[in-house]
Computed example of a mutant assay.
Amino acid sequence: MSHTAHIRSHRKPRRSASSLAVRSGVAGGVLSTLAVAGAAGYANAADAEPVTQTLQLPTLTADVATQVAQSADATQQAAANYELQAERDAAAASAAKQAKADLAEAKQKAEAKKKAQEEARKQAATRATRNAGRTVLSAYASAGTSNVTGTSTVTGTSAGTSTGSSSATGSAASIVSFVKSQVGKAYVSGATGPSAYDCSGLVQTAFKQVGISLPRVSQDQSTAGTQVSLNSLQPGDILYWGSAGSAYHVGVYVGGGMFVGAQNPSTGVVERPLSYDQPTGAVRVL
Score class of each variant (00 low, 15 high):
Asn264Leu: 01
Ser167Met: 14
Ala69Gly: 04
Gly255Tyr: 02
Ser232Leu: 06
Gly261Met: 08
Asp237Leu: 03
Thr267Tyr: 13
Ala282Thr: 00
Arg121Gly: 07
Ala125Gly: 07
Ala93Phe: 04
Gly41Met: 08
Ser171Cys: 10
Ala262Asn: 00
Glu118Phe: 00
Gln221Pro: 01
Val22Glu: 10
Tyr197Trp: 00
Val176Trp: 04
Tyr187Trp: 07
Ala143Glu: 11
Ala27Asn: 09
Val210Ala: 09
Ala79Tyr: 12
Ser166Ala: 15
Gly261Phe: 00
Ser162Val: 15
Val68Asp: 12
Asn231Lys: 05
Lys114Met: 11
Ser167Lys: 06
Arg130Thr: 10
Thr169Ala: 12
Arg88Asn: 12
Ser200Cys: 00
Ser9Asp: 08
Ser243Thr: 11
Ala141Thr: 14
Ala78Cys: 01
Gln67Cys: 08
Ser167Ala: 07
His10Trp: 13
Glu119Arg: 06
Leu34Cys: 10
Glu105Met: 12
Ser229Cys: 13
Cys199Trp: 00
Ser189Glu: 11
Gly160Asn: 05
Gln278Ile: 09
Ser32Tyr: 07
Pro50Thr: 15
Gly184Ser: 05
Gln204Thr: 05
Val285Asn: 01
Ala40Tyr: 05
Ser152Leu: 15
Ser142Phe: 04
Leu55Met: 11
Gln76Val: 13
Ser177Lys: 04
Ala17Pro: 04
Glu87Met: 09
Gly150Glu: 04
Gln67Gly: 12
Gly28Phe: 09
Thr135His: 12
Gln98Leu: 15
Ala86Ile: 03
Ala116Cys: 00
Ser32Trp: 13
His3Asp: 15
Ser165Ala: 15
Glu111Lys: 15
Thr192Arg: 07
Ala112Pro: 02
Phe178Cys: 00
Thr153Met: 10
Glu105Ile: 07
Thr205Ile: 02
Ala37Cys: 05
Ala110Cys: 03
Asp89Arg: 09
Leu274Thr: 06
Lys185Gln: 06
Lys208Tyr: 12
Gln221Asn: 02
Arg88Tyr: 05
Thr267Cys: 02
Val68His: 08
Gln204Gly: 03
Ala39Cys: 09
Ser181His: 02
Gly156Ile: 07
Gln227Met: 06
Ser152Ile: 15
Ala93Val: 14
Val51Asp: 13
